[in-house]
């Protein structure tokens, strides 16, 4: 099938170093102000108060986090916001040694999916883990939110600074 492959021209590192390449560049000017919506507004307000909430659907009885205005399974409005705990279980994690533009970082960031206590099984959110040696992170580990001081909270997911391992005997 060689004959069905076009002999595409490609550039090598040398072509760039020697300035043999013509470029035009452009920086997008695009800014957005998103309305946070019915489900998410309440979640963000509660974060500012140092609490996590989920949304319950009376059709399937799921307690969902992140909370939502409608249940995507039942396609009905959710019925109530219900309080959740700020503890949970690590569903999965990574140890990330690069930034998004592939620059190396020395101390890894530790993104996790954490299933939140009080929500239905498997209902997780993404966040970061701290106060732990990278080697010690395990799936199934119990964790707790570390909140920023009240005066620093801005109704953002970053009002939780990160999650940390839950001390033995901590609340379930």
């Amino acid at each position: 099938m060689k004959e069905h492959v076009y002999d595409t021209v490609y550039l090598r590192g040398k072509d760039f170093e020697e300035g043999n390449v013509l470029f035009e560049t452009w920086d997008p000017n695009a800014r957005y102000a998103w309305d946070t919506g019915v489900g998410m507004s309440r979640f963000l307000q509660e974060l500012k108060a140092g609490r996590l909430v989920g949304a319950q659907c009376s059709g399937c009885c799921r307690v969902m986090v992140p909370p939502r205005m409608f249940c995507e399974h039942c396609f009905l409005p959710t019925d109530a916001f219900v309080p959740l705990q700020d503890t949970g279980t690590i569903v999965t994690f990574s140890l990330c040694y690069v930034t998004w533009d592939m620059i190396r970082i020395k101390e890894p960031q530790i993104p996790i999916v954490v299933a939140i206590d009080g929500a239905s099984p498997g209902m997780g959110i993404m966040h970061l883990l701290g106060e732990i040696e990278p080697d010690a992170v395990k799936i199934g580990m119990r964790v707790q939110a570390v909140w920023k001081p009240a005066e620093e909270r801005t109704a953002s997911i970053t009002d939780i600074a990160y999650f940390k391992p839950l001390e033995q005997g901590g609340s379930q």
Binding site: P66, T92, S94, V98, W100, M126, I139, I157
Partner: peptide, 29 residues
């Protein structure tokens, strides 16, 4: 950089995620 807008604009992008995260999280699971 063009992929980062796939993350939820309220509860994921403020964490300054890296696209590799979701694949690493899935691979580890």
């Amino acid at each position: 950089g063009a992929f980062l807008t796939i993350f939820d604009n309220f509860i994921e992008r403020p964490l300054e995620p890296n696209l590799l995260w979701i694949f690493a999280l899935e691979m580890n699971a």
